[in-house]
């Protein structure tokens, strides 16, 4: 009987854990350079300590659209699993085509520096922001 009670408790706990696993949200760090300054808005101190935006550059591709490059540097020795999304804004600060911008996976090796690039898909896009979130890397 005690064994049955123990098994039932274990099952209940596993159900609870399963529910929480799906609701684990990514954390975010937002880089805002609308004003020409790189300002980090920390949504999570853990992520802030793990990844840093070290450079932001703009140029134009051959078709005339804006392109942005974000240089990201890992601050830790272990591999980190991130997702990033680059959003574009018009001259009035309104996001362009926000629904269609996707989060892309990014795996950064320990203490490595990577550059991610985004190209605007509208001539009206003049500034951009990168949003980074960390995903469970337990696998």
């Amino acid at each position: 009987m005690k064994l049955f009670a123990f098994a039932a408790c274990l099952l209940a706990i596993s159900q609870l854990v399963g529910c929480w696993w799906y609701t684990t949200a990514g954390t975010s760090v937002v880089l805002n350079h609308d004003t020409g300054k790189s300002v980090l808005f920390e949504g999570n101190t853990t992520l802030r300590n793990r990844i840093a935006v070290t450079a932001v550059t703009y140029d134009k591709v051959a078709s005339g659209m804006n392109r942005v490059n974000f240089q990201l540097a890992s601050q830790v020795q272990k591999e980190i699993h991130l997702q990033y999304r680059i959003a574009w804004f018009n001259s009035e600060g309104m996001e362009i085509d926000g629904d269609s911008r996707t989060y892309r996976p990014l795996i950064v090796q320990g203490l490595d520096t990577v550059t991610v690039t985004g190209v605007a898909n509208s001539p009206a896009a003049v500034t951009s922001r990168i949003r980074i979130r960390e995903w469970d890397s337990s696998h």
Binding site: G26, V61, A62, S63, M65, R67, Q83, R85, D99, S100, R101, T102, Y103, R104, P105, G118, V119, N121, W135, D136
Partner: peptide
């Protein structure tokens, strides 16, 4: 739309990323 993967197979977020990357690449190509 860009939720975490739930299977190892092709998922909606993979298609969305592919579409975005292809469109950006084509627009940027010299």
């Amino acid at each position: 739309l860009d939720r975490r993967p739930i299977t190892s197979r092709l998922e909606a977020q993979d298609i969305r990323r592919t579409v975005e990357k292809m469109a950006e690449s084509l627009i940027a190509d010299e």
